[in-house]
């Protein structure tokens, strides 16, 4: 079951029977805009998958009127994809989370900073090459902002 949709490829390849559209990241924003006009009013989930030599970004879209779910996939070599905050507000926190843990940069996000970890944390934990043995500690400075440090004496 394959069909050509502009420059994107659509197929069902997961076990869940959800239609997957694969789009080049240059066309992602226009494609998503079309999807929103088609009635997909909610961006349910953004997932980054580290495929070792490239990053894959998976978007789950939901249409509340027909209860239809679709996946939109795109790949990136340098970790930069366009931001979708102007289309769905739910992207605002999801993109910050994926930036924090996976290191994907969303171009056009107005406030792309880490959401869980302190701003100076080294590395992105969900990357496959992240070194788990390199322990970082968290402390708080005089202004009440958290910071990360490698010095165990400085941690809590």
């Amino acid at each position: 079951m394959k069909e050509q949709l502009g420059e994107s490829v659509s197929a069902v390849n997961g076990k869940d029977g959800i239609m997957v559209h694969t789009v080049a990241k240059e066309r992602l924003f226009e494609f998503m805009k079309e999807m929103k006009e088609k009635g997909f009013d909610s961006l349910s989930l953004i997932t980054g998958v580290d495929r070792k030599d490239y990053l894959e970004v998976v978007y789950h879209l939901h249409n509340f009127a027909t209860d239809e779910y679709v996946e939109v996939k795109t790949t990136t070599d340098n970790g930069v994809v366009p931001s979708l905050v102007s289309l769905w507000s739910s992207a605002r926190w999801d993109e910050r989370e994926e930036y924090d843990l996976m290191g994907i940069k969303f171009e056009g996000h107005e406030n792309l900073k880490r959401i869980f970890l302190p701003e100076n944390w080294v590395g992105h934990p969900l990357r496959k090459d992240y070194n788990l043995k390199n322990i970082q500690y968290i402390n708080m400075d005089k202004d009440g902002e958290d910071y990360a440090t490698f010095d165990p004496g400085d941690g809590w």
Partner: peptide
């Protein structure tokens, strides 16, 4: 093997788990 996105209704809302 494969990919699956499952959604369930938790006490707080739609709880989705996506496994690759």
């Amino acid at each position: 093997d494969g990919e699956y996105y499952a959604r369930t209704e938790s006490a707080k809302g739609e709880f989705g788990v996506y496994i690759v």
